[in-house]
Amino acid sequence: MTGGRAAIIVRMREQNTYAIRWHGRGGQGAVTSAKVLADAAFRSGFAGVMSQPSFGAERRGAPVTASTRLAREPIRDLSQVTEPDIVIVLDESLVALGGPTAGLRPGGLVIVNSPGSASDLGIEDATVVTSDVTGAAEAADLIVGGQPMVSTAILGAVAAATGLVTMEAVEQAIEHAFTGSAARKNIEAARIAFECTAKGA
């Protein structure tokens, strides 16, 4: 969509490693998202994938983070990602709290679950992509305990915005993580999110 984003992806490819940080709320499944993305990336040809939660006792609704690293070589750094190339935000309200942009590499990519436009989020020095992932989850009837589940749906947006993983790999990874109708709904939600997210490089 924008030359800027293509340049980011090219730069990240040159450095051969992608540091991704997830921001969500307890119960939204950021940890699941991070794990499934690692699986999808492995299926997309990354030899080194790593996803880990930030360990704590966060409850439903509390801000949580997770870290993912993707590389062509096995990963040996197990520390949390503090200077991400890519930030993925499952809950738009977290942007205003400042966590998602902390330590973001200049010109990094921020993917936000939001029905609004990127320019409204007030994030500077970064390429921002919004995707109404909650809307996608609702459209796929992916509702658990009264809440739309965005954890897998956002992977469609990530696949679209970064091009790092194929949608096919995302679907395989979801199928691996879920079973039966749950897998079907999760895949559908991810597909919807993929379709309505601006494509990256």
Binding site: G27, R60, V144, G145, G146, Q147
Partner: peptide, 10 residues
Amino acid sequence: CPSGWGFDPK
């Protein structure tokens, strides 16, 4: 327990 039993917190 909403999260453990699987129901809306309300």
